[in-house]
Computed example of a mutant assay.
Amino acid sequence: MGIVISSLSKNYGNQKALDSISFSIKSGEVVGLLGPNGAGKSTLMKSVTGAIIPDGGEIKVNEFSVLNQPIQTKKLIGFLPENNPLYYEMYIREYLKFVGNIRNEKKERIEEVIKKVGLTPESHKKIGQLSKGYKQRVGLAQAILSNPEILILDEPTNGLDPNQILEIREVIREIGKEKTVILSTHIMQEVEALCSRVILLNKGKIVSDSPIEEFKGQYKNLEEAFHTLTS
């Protein structure tokens, strides 16, 4: 159970975004997905969600095929993309009700999620009136609304101030106690605080896949490991 990826490949013209990569993630793991810009991280995450169709290989989510059983796999996954697309003219509850209707969620679940991600003080506002930190909370709320078994977060604290980063990090930490999480970020402290394992991509290939303690044992810190392995 979890995610199993076998020989996954994706090309954009002559560029290899993913070059026959393989790995698995067990249920309940919190995995940091690292790499320079253009390493293939977003392509990988979008392939797992079914938003991108790979050119070759296979992805299984809890033994369902992403390619051949997309409805079953999408039901298991919550996704917060990097640009966090939201409807700014909608009120928070209105937007979450819209998402909840798509996923057949009860109204009670919407209130539960608003409280869980710390949206209660702002829940009367339109999304466009929110600070960046609260917009990220709305993105997290929609990602966990259906209580997915697997949560994929692409740069969840991008553009936030230090206080907002700590707040969102705490929300993710709580969620990570119950879910399988793939977290992509350029903030190494975030990986150290939240992840038990690191997968490092460079030029579409996995250059390292280790428990975070092994990284700490081999290098002074994650920044040094990142620089050494991707230079």
Rank of each mutant, 00 (worst) to 15 (best):
S20F: 00
L166S: 14
G159L: 11
E29I: 11
N163R: 14
S123R: 10
E111Q: 10
T228I: 14
G139Q: 04
S146A: 15
E155Y: 02
T180L: 09
L33Q: 02
S42N: 05
E94A: 03
E167M: 11
K10A: 04
K220L: 14
V48K: 02
V31I: 14
E108T: 13
I150M: 09
L201S: 01
M188V: 03
G2A: 04
R109V: 12
E167I: 10
P148Y: 12
K115R: 14
V207H: 06
G133P: 09
Y91A: 07
G217R: 13
L229R: 09
L86I: 12
Y95R: 00
V207A: 06
K26H: 10
Q218W: 07
S47M: 08
N68K: 15
L160A: 07
Q164K: 09
K203A: 13
V66I: 12
L130Q: 12
R103N: 11
A225Q: 04
Y95D: 02
I199L: 13
E112N: 13
K203N: 14
P85T: 13
E223W: 00
S208L: 11
A193F: 11
D19P: 00
N221H: 10
E94C: 08
L145Y: 01
G118Q: 06
N83L: 12
I92Q: 07
S65G: 10
G139A: 10
S20W: 00
G13N: 13
G13H: 13
Q142F: 06
I114A: 08
I59V: 13
T228H: 14
P211A: 07
